[in-house]
Design a protein around this nucleic acid. Structure first.
Length: 270
DNA sequence: ATGTAAACCTGTGCGC
DNA sequence: TGCGCACAGGTTTACA
């Protein structure tokens, strides 16, 4: 489900409401990708300072330590004043004085991890090595250019790897490459400066638009306030195998790259 | 170091 | 209606 836009939309939908709240209780469901890393009861009494995002991670800052939340493939958060009986796939509740934050994650590829600080080993292991924030000031054209030229990977896989730039997942990688007119299979290092510049701009453009539209709700994604996104209606190639390209009517192609599907227009993308 | 595949887990949609 | 298979928004780990 969640790439950068969905995570950011989720963050915005509850960050202000939860800031300043006191943790009253923590409920754990079935195990997630990683263990919480501390006794659940030890969080009780701590206060939420704010919520940040790094790549696809949400960082919930507490007055002592922080929680790193990843939504994996099928996770979504809900922040609500009422706390109905947890469903089969609700695997984590953070009950606070301002409401309950609940993680719903059928596949349980997601995780909630407590770290004493960003320099703690658990946090470093997850956050170190992440690439530039595509919507932040560190996302410079020069650094992006250098990173692309240095990689022998097919450009789609370079984007997905998250070591050059974070937050671009399978949907937005295909979409950005379509916007830039670049085939997903092209070796990154073979791209020239003009095409790299186009890709640089396409990434920011696609992610920015997706956030504006509230993310993509392909299956059942909704943000923490329950609203769903609309980017799925603005998608150009993702999931459109065999359907005509909106620009040239050539059927969109689907291929496999590193066990993930890629979609592109064989005519518009070279 | 690099590149590929398998692993984690559950649900859904499709062909037969 | 049931069965088996392919596939799904992510990331780490294991192995060539």
């Amino acid at each position: 489900m969640p790439e950068l836009p969905e995570v950011e939309v989720t963050r915005r939908s509850f960050a202000e409401a939860i800031a300043g709240a006191r943790i009253l209780a923590v409920r754990l469901g079935k195990p997630l990708r990683w263990p919480l890393g501390c006794p659940a009861e030890s969080l009780v009494g701590l206060n939420v300072v704010g919520v940040r995002r790094r790549g696809k991670y949400l960082l919930i800052d507490l007055d002592r330590g922080l929680l790193l939340v990843h939504l994996g493939m099928s996770g979504s958060l809900r922040f609500s004043g009422s706390q109905p009986e947890p469903g089969k796939h609700d695997h984590w509740d953070l009950q606070t004085s301002a409401g309950t934050l609940r993680l719903h994650d059928p596949r349980r590829f997601g995780a909630v991890v407590y770290a004493q600080g960003e320099e703690a080993p658990v946090a470093k292991k997850l956050l170190d090595g992440l690439g530039m924030e595509p919507l932040g000031p560190s996302f410079s054209p020069l650094a992006f250019h250098q990173g692309v030229k240095a990689s022998r990977l097919p450009v789609k896989q370079l984007l997905l790897a998250g070591k050059l730039v974070v937050g671009v997942g399978n949907i937005y990688a295909s979409e950005a490459l379509y916007l830039a007119g670049i085939r997903p299979t092209v070796r990154a290092s073979s791209l020239g400066p003009v095409r790299i510049q186009r890709l640089y701009q396409a990434i920011g453009q696609v992610l920015g638009k997706a956030i504006e539209l509230g993310g993509s709700s392909l299956k059942d994604f909704s943000s923490a306030d329950g609203s769903s996104g609309h980017f799925q209606n603005a998608v150009q190639v993702y999931g459109r195998a065999g359907l005509p390209c909106y620009v040239c009517s050539t059927p969109v192609k689907m291929i496999r790259q590193g066990q993930r599907s890629s979609f592109y227009c064989p005519s518009c993308q070279r």
